[in-house]
Amino acid sequence: MNEANMSMLKISGLKVAYGGIKAVKGIDLEVNKGELVTLIGANGAGKTTTLKAITGTLPACKVEGTISYQGQPLKGTHSFQIVEKKLAMVPEGRGVFTRMSIHENLLMGAYTRNDKAGIDADVEKWYSVFPRLKERSTSMAGTLSGGEQQMLAMARALMSHPELLLLDEPSMGLSPIMVEKIFEVIRNVSKEGITILLVEQNAKLALQAAHRGYVMDSGAITMTGDAAAMLNDPRVQAAYLGE
Results as ranks from 00 to 15, higher is better:
Met154Pro: 00
Met154Ser: 02
Met154Gln: 04
Met154Asp: 00
Ala155Glu: 00
Arg156Thr: 03
Arg156Leu: 07
Ala157Ile: 02
Ala157Gln: 02
Ala157Cys: 11
Ala157Leu: 02
Leu158Tyr: 02
Leu158Cys: 08
Met159Leu: 06
Met159Glu: 08
Met159Asp: 08
Ser160Val: 00
Ser160Pro: 02
Ser160Trp: 02
His161Trp: 12
His161Tyr: 15
His161Ile: 09
Pro162Leu: 06
Pro162Glu: 09
Pro162Trp: 05
Pro162Tyr: 01
Pro162His: 06
Glu163Val: 05
Glu163Arg: 10
Glu163Ala: 14
Leu165Pro: 04
Leu165Glu: 04
Leu165Lys: 01
Leu166Lys: 03
Leu167Asn: 04
Leu167Gly: 03
Asp168Gln: 04
Asp168Val: 02
Asp168Cys: 08
Glu169Ser: 12
Glu169Cys: 13
Glu169Asn: 13
Pro170Met: 01
Ser171Arg: 09
Ser171Lys: 08
Ser171Cys: 12
Met172Thr: 05
Met172Ala: 15
Met172Asn: 09
Met172Leu: 15
Gly173Val: 06
Gly173Glu: 11
Leu174Pro: 06
Leu174Met: 10
Leu174Glu: 05
Ser175Val: 10
Ser175Tyr: 06
Pro176Gly: 08
Pro176Thr: 01
Ile177Pro: 00
Ile177Phe: 13
Met178Leu: 15
Met178Asn: 11
Met178Phe: 12
Met178Tyr: 10
Val179Lys: 09
Glu180Arg: 13
Glu180Phe: 12
Glu180Val: 03
Glu180Asp: 14
Lys181Ala: 14
Lys181Ile: 10
Ile182Ala: 01
Ile182Leu: 09
Ile182Tyr: 05
Ile182Thr: 04
Phe183Asp: 05
Phe183Lys: 03
Phe183Arg: 02
Glu184Thr: 13
Glu184Phe: 11
Glu184Gly: 13
Val185Asn: 01
Val185Lys: 01
Arg187Gly: 14
Arg187Val: 15
Arg187Leu: 13
Asn188Thr: 14
Val189Lys: 00
Val189Ala: 03
Val189Leu: 05
Ser190Met: 00
Ser190Val: 10
Ser190Ile: 09
Ser190Lys: 12
Lys191Glu: 15
Lys191Pro: 10
Lys191His: 14
Lys191Met: 11
Glu192Ser: 15
Glu192Pro: 11
Glu192Val: 07
Glu192Ala: 14
Glu192Gln: 15
Glu192Phe: 12
Gly193Pro: 10
Gly193Ala: 11
Ile194Gln: 03
Ile194Asp: 00
Ile194Ser: 02
Ile194Leu: 06
Ile194Glu: 02
Thr195Tyr: 05
Ile196Ala: 05
Leu197Glu: 09
Leu197Gly: 07
Leu198Trp: 06
Leu198Gln: 02
Val199Lys: 07
Glu200Met: 08
Glu200Asp: 07
Glu200Asn: 04
Gln201Arg: 10
Gln201Ser: 11
Gln201Trp: 08
Gln201Phe: 11
Asn202Gln: 08
Asn202Leu: 08
Asn202Tyr: 09
Asn202Val: 07
Ala203Tyr: 06
Lys204Ala: 14
Lys204Cys: 11
Lys204His: 14
Lys204Glu: 14
Lys204Ile: 12
Lys204Arg: 15
Leu205Ala: 15
Leu205Asn: 12
